[in-house]
Design a protein around this nucleic acid. Structure first.
Lengths: 239, 239
DNA sequence: CCGACGCTTCGTCACGGAGCGAAGCGTCGG
DNA sequence: CCGACGCTTCGCTCCGTGACGAAGCGTCGG
């Protein structure tokens, strides 16, 4: 049993606290500078530099240079997925670092998981879209129903851009704080963009917590309500 | 960003080659003795014992004692999911340990991923069941359609046992070798049991490869064919 | 131009963890 | 009962890795 992916190499990279903190910070989906990441990791810039080089060599993160600033971001959704899987396992097996507090509650309510909405509100979004059939199971993962397409189009989302060959327009991502699925993939990403760009919510100081305005929350509820009451009749016998 | 699950602790456990090999061996879904796991890891029994204690303390594996034999198995599906996520990431980022060979081909074709069928055949099973609507998206993950329920019942599967409160009857699990979904969860588990108990296939020497007999392969194809041609008409416009 | 800043590279040190030999305990089977 | 076997625990060694200080390079802005 020595063939196949070398999970030890990958896990060992994530298994260092400094690197784990960096990767977790990058789960916000935003690119951060080497200096910012050294703060996140709580180490000196020189140490952070060595760590970042390892992550980049392993292709877990990507580098973009802007003058003297070096911006790093996660290499892609599969990195986020692996980290989310570890988070789920850590949460499930009781490996938590601090007691839940007010900030944790905000994280649990709404946060970005890489490029899409997670937390209780992310789960509600997924559930609502599934319940009324805007998204359905396909061989390539979750897909859009015809009714779903027109609904998202009405929200200003470029639906054609979501559906590219060999790429599922959405994906169920298991939420470590809710133990249920929230919506990931291109649709999930587009919806978080809609929420942030539309001013419904803004990022918290930690860059990851998503804080809805009063008005934004109403807009979000209206999105769920339209999702739940429009188009397809409810499949009562299904569940 | 110091709150939340401690992924470094979990990843560090997986990041040791000996422990990674053990966990990978346990992805077969079978329980193995401490001695067997020390062979898998390529270390002495005393070293293996210390590693196993760490994994058990962290609740990644469970111990069952039978006389002088100590059987260990993965603690649950969330462990398998995290490992699978790391496998996907390792494969995606080019962290492979050996060149693909004949054995690897058998692994890619059909293998057990914890308690369900993975590899090309596992992906085909998922796709066929989705295409004809036996399984559909629900808020709790993938669920069974009415037609799916009667079909699986006809195969001798205890469908009522699959659908328990708070537990999705199936789940899409991303396959690291195929980069597509195969079927996990209770239904996936029941189908692998059907395949193995029904004599359609047996486990390879490595305990993880699933080797179909000629006859078993025909039975499998018939399952797919019935899945694809029966009940619900094809949703041609969907994709 | 030049000092400040962001970041990388080099050298060194200290600590922790994985490894194994030795020893011991409990179970099994003849 | 007793030797063989499976497994755990203890003690010790060695190596690898993360940490930081020092130094250097490139970019930025006054």
């Amino acid at each position: 049993m020595k063939e196949g992916p070398d999970i030890a190499a990958i896990a060992a990279l994530i298994g260092d606290p400094a690197r784990a903190n960096m990767l977790t910070a990058l789960m916000s989906g935003m690119a951060l500078t080497a200096g910012e990441l050294s703060c996140e990791a709580g180490v000196t810039p020189q140490t952070a530099s060595a760590h970042l080089a390892k992550l980049a060599d392993a292709r877990l993160i990507l580098l973009e240079t802007h003058g003297r600033h070096r911006y790093f971001r996660l290499a892609g959704a599969e990195v986020a997925a692996a980290i989310e899987g570890l988070m789920e396992l850590a949460a499930h097996s009781g490996h938590l670092r601090t007691r839940p507090g007010p900030r944790d509650m905000a994280m649990r309510r709404a946060r970005s998981c890489y490029d899409h909405l997670a937390g209780a509100m992310g789960v509600r979004l997924h559930d609502a879209l599934v319940e009324q059939g805007s998204i359905v199971a396909t061989a390539h993962g979750l897909g859009l129903s015809p009714a779903g397409r027109s609904r998202f189009r009405a929200e200003g989302i470029d639906v054609e851009a979501l559906e590219r060959p060999g790429r599922a327009p959405c994906r169920a991502c298991l939420d470590w704080s809710e133990r249920r699925h929230h919506l990931a993939g291109p649709l999930g990403s587009a919806l978080l963009s809609l929420i942030l760009d539309g001013g419904w919510a803004k990022r918290g100081a930690d860059r990851r917590t998503i804080l809805f305005t009063r008005e934004g929350e109403e807009r979000f509820e209206k999105l769920l309500a339209r999702s739940e009451s429009a188009a397809k009749p409810r499949l009562v016998g299904l569940r």
